[in-house]
Design a protein around this nucleic acid. Sequence first.
RNA 1: GGCCCCAUCGUCUAGCUCGGUCCAGGACGCCAGGUUCUCAUCCUGGAAACGGGGGUUCGAAUCCCCCUGGGGUCACCA
Length: 508
Amino acid sequence: MGVGSEIRPTEEVSSESRPTLGVDSEIRATLGGDPRGVGPFFQSQRLEIYREHFERLLEMGRAYPTFESAEELDAMRTAARERKETFRYRRPDDYDHAAATARMKTEEHVLRFHMTSEPVRVVDEVLGEIEFTDQHFDDFIIRKRNGFPTYHFAVVVDDELMGVTHVLRGQEHLNNTPRHVGLQKALGFATPTYAHLPLIFNPTGSKMSKRDKDKAARAACKEAGLKASPITSIADREFKGWLKDKKSQLHTEQLVELAAHLSLELPEIDVDDFRRSGYLPEVVCNFVALLGWNPGMKNDDGTDVEKFDMDFLGEHFDFSRIGKGPSKFDRAKLLSFSRDALAAMSDGEFESCWRAWCERYDPSILERLGDSFALAARAAKLRARTLKDAANAVRFALVEDDAYAFDARAVKKVLLKNDGEGLNVLDGFREKLGAIEPFEPDAIESAVRAFCDSREIGMGTLAQPLRVAVTGSTVSPGLGETLALLGRERTIARIERCLAVEHKVSGG
RNA sequence: GGCCCCAUCGUCUAGCUCGGUCCAGGACGCCAGGUUCUCAUCCUGGAAACGGGGGUUCGAAUCCCCCUGGGGUCACCA
């Protein structure tokens, strides 16, 4: 969801960027820097800026070089674990700064920040005051062997230079805060206001992560026993590497294609995933805001205020009402919010939203519906939980007239029962079809009603056989809408096909 | 394991700051009815929670302590 992430000016920003509530596009638009002089936004281009601050820290003795290899550090960690101790890198008591800085001129090294043992008090807007006392601070790395700053160093410098006053991030960053504060103090920077937001979990209880999509896809691939890449957009070699490395990620486009190939529903994680799944952006915003925050207001009918827009959020949002505990992402409730929002739209609004979604994600729907799209939108609106889901309501109209199957139970119950009463009624009504004018929902329903009245039968006695005849199932939108959507020709064709096919069944 | 954070129905939460109006309210989901040509919608009703134990108090969901539970974090990732 991007909530736990920070948008950092890293080397990887362009490939790994996540559109987070529209912020990303702005940042990308100014990658080279902006009029305030805060850019450039590529770490490689900022190295000179960082270098200056590394120097300062080095001079005041708060930064120092260390020369252990990654393997040596690993060994030290393992040894510490065996002694049941937490591994902490601390500057040796006999550390000789002059010697070390001389040595760093010729040897590969990393730079570490020397944390003092002075307690760090963090004032967090949602958690309150937290004191990180113990001497458990370690001297963390601020510059890697390759000369690039680590995240901890980069955030602190970048935030200062960008004039960042408020840092909102996931609670997973809470333990990093004393490091950042320590760095800020050493560098003489101001400490921004911190607000650590509660984490969001999957219904299973695991942390919601952008890697979840890869995880799901990987599991499906293994399930299917796939050894080689099934699609051209993923090179075989890349595919195999991805299968093996649990931390690797494919591009969204590749994942989407792979999921389609496996008929797998990818979990929605990024804002874009939700859009693809047919959720309105404003609904997602509303829902996510409600995870961990609550306006604490009542509606006139005594229910809680839960549905609101960005304006409301802008006016009422405040840190003090943010929950402290993590929350699980409840798909069912999101779906409910989504359905309500779609249903609350005018027919016209829904039609254009759905059309836009189809254009972007499934143009074939547009082609198949053609001029009937508006009618289909009307039929689908009340039945759609998401824009993606909308097509299901009118699925019957998307297939060829002889390509849908008749549900066996429906046929038995609706058409064949009572010596084929359904088929007889259907046959009787078929003749009336030519006379309905215009062939639109209201007129069609009137005709159905009139026919039933004249025969003194209930609406259902005709409606259900008709529905099964033209859709193959007992479920569809209102009868008028269903028939109108197909049009007169197709309706008649479908009824005739049904009568022909079922004749054999009932005869046998 | 060390450190840090958290703890009300299955889920999201209101209530906790200023203890009594809370035998705990709402929403989603679930169950049972009703309306309707099916589905969906809509309406009515229902089951469902203050993790446990100690305090403080006339009185605790609300304050304090302990336990338990959940989570986060311990990288030359961000």
